[in-house]
Each structure stands twice: as C-alpha cells, then as structure tokens.
Design a protein around this nucleic acid. Structure first.
Lengths: 148, 148
DNA sequence: TATTGTTATACTCTATAACTATA
DNA sequence: TATAGTTATAGAGTATAACAATA
C-alpha cells in the first residue's frame, strides 16, 4: 500500500499548491501568534493595518481584509471588547468611523509584529534565502496585479 | 481618503501573501470547474487522485486531502450518490474499502482535468512563463519538504 | 486490543438580507 | 435617494467524540 499518493492529476495547478501550502502557513501563525495571543489571522492583519494606517474606516477594511462589511463589524466588536481597538466618530460625517489602536492595542500590535518577523524561518528552511524572497515577490506580484 | 491601505506590517510574511493569493485562485477554480460541474475543490482533487491512483482507501485520502476521516466519508457519500465513485470491499480485509471511479466518474474526471490544464492562464498572465514555473516549483518544494 | 470506516454533534466561518442613522 | 455601519439569520465548512464491524 502506497503511503504517498500520486498527485500527477493536479501537479500543473498553481492554485492547488497554493491551497496546500496555506495549511502549514496557517499552522505557523497559530503556533507563534494565534494561540499565545488569542488572535485569528484576520484579527492579526487588522492590528497590522491599524499600526501603519491609523484611523481607517470599516469601509476601507472591507476590500483590504477581503471580508464582507458585517464581518468587519463583528471583528471590531471583539477587538474593542478586549480594549485593543476603539471606534471614533468622524467629525464631518456622522455615519463614518475611524478605527484606532488603544495604548494596549498598540503595545500588542508592536509585540506580535516583532514576533512575526522571524516566525516563518523554520517553515521556509528548505528554501534558500533567495528562493524565499523570490516566492514572496511572485505572490505579491500576482496579487498586486489583480483587483485589490 | 486612501483607496489602498499600506500593507507594510505584513509585507514580510509569505503566509500572508499565500492566503491572499489563494482567494483569486479559488475563484478561478469555481468559474471554470466548480460552478459548471458542481464540484468543490476537495471533490475535484479526489477525482484527480482517483484518476491516477485507482482503488485507494479513505484511510489513504485523509493525509492526501488534508481532511479528517469523517469528512472523507461524507465526501465519498456525495460522489457515490452522483454515481461518480463507487466503494468496493477489500477481499482480504473486510474493514477496508477501495474507491473506484465509475465510467461516468472517469469521463467527468478526464473532462475537468483537460479543462484545468488551461484555466489558470488569465490569472497568471502577469507572470512570465518562467515565473509561473518558478512559483509552482517553489510551492511544491515547500510542501514536499514538510510532512505530507 | 487495534484498526477501518461511520454516525452524531457541535463549532466556526462565511454570506446575504433587512434595518438604523446620517447625509 | 444614497451611504456607513449594524443586526439578524441561514448556510457551508470543519473538528471531535462515540460507535459498529472486522482484524
């Protein structure tokens, strides 16, 4: 009995290998950041976006996080309840919100960002430094080309 | 108001760009195969595996499809009900099963395989032929290195 | 006693429609 | 009348534990 199946039927598909590689990629995140700090990938991403783009609106997060508007509301609810993020009313437009990191949120965001810088090393060890850069740049090129 | 947020906080993460690229990758599958043939990605992958590995057992599919055993049962249930796959008892071991494509399943598997050969062209258009090969090979290398 | 596959069940994630409040 | 955000709800996907049949 074979222990590894022949994947010849899907070997030609970038999408297949992308989906497969995503599994250990998510595990790396979970082990280094997700579990220790109780952050889901999308929550981590939101913190990272707020670190660099303070004051963005939920409306702007919909395309950036690739998540529908109602989910952004729930996402911000959770982070606001943990006092990591706060909602501020837009002074000119009473409908719109500005999202800001609290002091606590800022500290956490900086900490997990620092941790994230080295967390993928083991996972990517099989690739040379040049290959890692190449892989990331090809993925970025692919994404930046399509509708962001 | 900026229309594209600064992703500087996550730019260094291969896992982030992998997850992001996976979104249009799934859309390509859905448009070309998923919707027209009512196949989910995991169902398509199972058909492709059976095309090359006839007679595999659900047990073998668990690691290959990265899906827990009960989900394999339900997956095979659906495809068996559509008369694409059939379960055969192992003659030597009454517990084990062999999964086979039916004639109908074989025909569908061959058809969607043929379609899949060209379906990613538009999506990957921004990459040169060499870059596409490079991307796929880096992803395969990354996966083959870790536990399959 | 261990293994293959199944059943039952709970949990999370995701998507959509309807609503509010402001403009 | 349109827009930002929220509420409510339903559907799909995922994970775990308990079970039946065979070894």
């Amino acid at each position: 009995m074979k222990h590894t199946l022949d994947t010849a039927g899907v070997d030609h598909l970038v999408g297949f290998w992308l989906a497969v590689a995503d599994v250990p990629g998510r595990r790396v995140f979970r082990q280094h950041i997700g579990q220790p700090f109780e952050l889901k990938p999308v929550e981590f991403t939101l913190l990272m976006l707020l670190l660099v783009n303070p004051g963005v609106s939920p409306k702007q997060l919909v395309p950036a996080l690739r998540v529908p508007a109602p989910q952004v509301t729930l996402l911000v609810d959770r982070l606001a309840q943990r006092e990591l993020v706060e909602r501020r009313r837009n002074a000119r437009d009473g409908r719109a919100l500005h999202l800001m990191l609290t002091a606590k949120g800022q500290a956490l965001a900086e900490k997990v960002h620092r941790l994230s810088l080295g967390m993928e090393q083991d996972w990517l060890q099989v690739l040379s430094p040049g290959e890692r850069v190449m892989l990331r740049e090809l993925l970025m090129k692919l994404t930046r080309a399509s509708a962001d």
